[in-house]
Amino acid sequence: MIWNWTQPDWPQFTYDAASLAPLENQFLLSSGEVIGAVRHFKDEDRDLLRIELLSDEAVKTSEIEGEMLDRQSVQSSLRRQLGLASEDRPVKPQERGIAEMMIDVYQSWHTPLDHPTLYRWHAMLMTENRHLETIGGYRTHADAMQIVSGRHDKPAIHYEAPPSLRIPTEMESYIDWFNTSAPDAGLPLPPLTRAGLGHLYFESIHPFEDGNGRIGRALAEKSLAQSLGRPSLIALAHTIESARKTYYDQLERNQRTLDVTEWLAYFAGTVIKAQKTTLERVAFYIAKAHFYDRFRGRLNDRQEQAVARMFREGPQGFKGGLSAENYIAIARASRATTTRDLADLVAKGALIRTGERRHTRYALNLD
């Protein structure tokens, strides 16, 4: 099988820059919208927004790899990392590790990339992992590094990365490319082109035993932040996870060629979609703040608990809307109490009711 790194011109990727120019322009315009939207927040609210967006990305970048994390635990760990008040709740090593890495990426976006940074991120992600030979360093095992699926006795090989002996040299070249392609360096590249190339390039080297996907997406965030001159805070992992199969299909196809125009167009479209998702989420958090301003002190403990649970579902809310059964489970209330509580929430304008009888559903009134 011919992989990109086996070809004579590796790692000289080629692409049609002219076809990507409109996407680059759209990205810069949308970036202004995102930055402007975040400026509407007060400092305290901006901290809360940052926690919300970072925790979303932490959970989703892990979900892409099939690892399910507790969002509230991740948020608690993020708060501690940022020196903010947090709940005293148990946090698993995986949740603490991804939170530490997200904060490190967020705070060190402007610094050049180097080996210690990548080692540090890997050590954070693999905290207390007992199954890897090397943690906080590049892989050294002699076995082939393959991406496979299917039956154990008849696996489908989607990709095979360079052997471990080549990794130090490959990563030296990668870091040099990353730093010299930065906006203020010798060979600057447009934002989406640089982020897309950087992600594919890194995933093709696959330098670690595990965690390459999460670190590769962190590198894309760092690249975009350097192009914008500030942390991007866009929902990149959230957007990739929503169409995970397409993401992996694109990676697989474009790891067999050095002409990566298709990959860059896909990645650029994904980033732009992520910006739109971020704007929607920012609007949602603004509406959330206004909601609590309107109803502060007007809801009982059960109603507060149910409303908080509804907000945790995000902009889409409960699938199909909140039912009475949902409320009973969340508030641990009787059916009669639930009926009174929901009717009161509708009368106060906190919830909107639709449907009748067993089809009755409720949604937050965020107008």
Rank of each mutant, 00 (worst) to 15 (best):
Y247P: 05
Q146C: 09
R50L: 12
L197R: 08
V34E: 06
E209W: 04
A21R: 04
P162F: 06
L197N: 05
G32Q: 10
L28A: 14
Q107I: 04
I51R: 02
D88F: 09
P22V: 05
E325C: 00
A58V: 04
I240M: 11
V307P: 00
S62A: 13
G150F: 07
G321C: 13
T134S: 04
R79S: 14
A306P: 03
R39E: 15
A363V: 09
A274E: 13
R253A: 15
A195W: 11
S181E: 10
L342W: 01
V148H: 11
S242P: 03
T277H: 08
N129F: 01
S86C: 10
Y174F: 15
L299C: 07
E262N: 11
R335C: 04
Q107M: 08
H290Y: 08
Y248E: 11
G83C: 10
G196P: 02
R361M: 07
F291T: 07
P8T: 14
E128F: 02
A347Y: 15
L219D: 03
A142Q: 13
Q75C: 04
A17D: 13
M102I: 11
Q94G: 02
Y106S: 01
Q94V: 03
H141Y: 13
E304Y: 06
S223I: 09
T180W: 12
V282N: 04
H206M: 12
H158E: 12
H290C: 07
P231R: 01
A333D: 04
T127N: 04
V38N: 04
D344R: 03
W5P: 02
A243C: 05
N326R: 02
H206S: 09
W121H: 06
R194N: 13
K154L: 12
A185M: 08
T338Q: 05
K348L: 15
I175T: 14
A274R: 00
A99M: 06
A156M: 07
Y327E: 14
A306G: 05
R217V: 12
E172K: 02
G136V: 14
A343Y: 03
A142N: 07
W263E: 01
A218G: 12
A37H: 05
E241M: 11
P8V: 12
M145Q: 12
R244Y: 11
R89K: 08
F202M: 08
R130F: 06
I135P: 00
L54H: 02
W263D: 01
T337K: 03
V260W: 01
A182Q: 08
V59R: 00
Y327V: 05
A343V: 09
V346D: 10
F41I: 04
L132G: 03
L224R: 02
R244G: 09
N300M: 08
A195F: 11
Q250C: 12
V105T: 10
A331G: 03
L236D: 02
G66C: 11
S73Q: 09
L342Q: 02
P22Y: 09
H110T: 06
K154Y: 14
N129H: 10
G83I: 02
F318C: 00
G320D: 07
I175H: 05
D341L: 00
A306F: 01
E24Q: 15
S204N: 12
E33K: 07
